[in-house]
Write a protein that binds this DNA or RNA. Structure first.
Lengths: 168, 168
DNA sequence: CAAATAAGTTAGTATCAACTAACAAAGAGA
DNA sequence: TCTCTTTGTTAGTTGATACTAACTTATTTG
């Protein structure tokens, strides 16, 4: 009588975060407990309980009282989709735009919930395109862009970074 | 006594949307009325009233009852910042990733509220870099990428697009 | 100008997702 | 096994933001 109220509407960003966290924890620790989710997402345990109820009603997770949280196949798939978006965004932000990893992560965490499938796909192709480039043309323009980021000039392309923190 | 409760916390996405709408309408129509905002954002007039109250308390807009809505200098600046993020996102999505303009607009509308300043700046530089490229190397890789998007192959670069929707 | 219509406001309600506080179950150590 | 601690749940509250319905002000038009 109660599971009758299956909510088929789109997931909110917040619920997506919970799904993602659960998937992440199961991957990392084999199991996901309320406490872990609570720590990871920086919310109180009671909020996690409420979220799990919500996700249960949508058949995205399975949870027996005082036990571990599991993903249903559908939940699993959704979590994977979200994580995929996260990953590609981080990749683009760090590798192309040279955003600091920490900020890239934060940006990705928020953008992953609003990016459309089309954009996700094209961005994926974009990164693929760059990665599979034949070595000779591959990094040319990207390197040039990085110079541009650093110097603001187009043709200063041979600069040596005297004290970068990477990549000599 | 009442304006005492100035809220200095960060604006929510929703409030940013209102600010942006007001700026847009003032640009387009010279004035912004509750009704216009309501139509533009697809919310009821009462919601607009509430939002305006909120923005007033933060000194971002000025509004006399039953009158037009104005932006304060601070509100104006914030609106411009948000619009700037929107614009650069649309530009990137359409010009680099070839996302359909409509979807690009939607994505930008949501992402503009979460993109960090750093990402905004780097993305701006990225577009700048591409646009100011000397003609010879400018579109080379971008063209190649577009081929790649269409054909999935790297070296099919000379295709003539007989009818855009291809990919038999 | 007065009645009709449009626009704006207010009050009260709903939903989402966080919180606190109080309570319940599990697990660990003596 | 009996406590103590940790973890999880429940109930009730809060804040943000949307809504509806009822009311008020402004504008238009006969």
């Amino acid at each position: 009588m109660s599971a009758r109220i299956k909510q088929n509407k789109k997931l909110s960003s917040n619920m997506e975060d919970y799904l993602e966290a659960i998937a992440y924890l199961r991957e990392k620790n084999k199991v996901a407990r309320v406490k872990d989710i609570s720590d990871l997402l920086q919310v109180k345990a009671s909020s996690v309980s409420a979220a799990i109820d919500n996700l249960s009603k949508r058949d995205l997770v399975v949870h027996e009282r005082y036990g571990y949280v599991q993903l249903t196949p559908v939940g699993e798939k959704m979590a994977r989709d979200i994580a995929g978006k996260h990953k590609i965004l981080v990749k683009f932000l760090t590798e192309i735009l040279s955003i600091d990893p920490e900020i890239a992560g934060e940006d990705a965490c928020k953008m992953e919930h609003s990016i459309s499938s089309q954009t996700f796909e094209k961005l994926t192709k974009f990164m693929e395109f760059i990665e599979t480039a034949p070595v000779k043309d591959k990094p040319e323009w990207l390197k040039a862009f990085n110079c541009y980021l650093k110097t603001g000039k187009r043709r200063a392309c041979k600069i040596k970074r005297t004290k970068p923190k990477t990549k000599t």
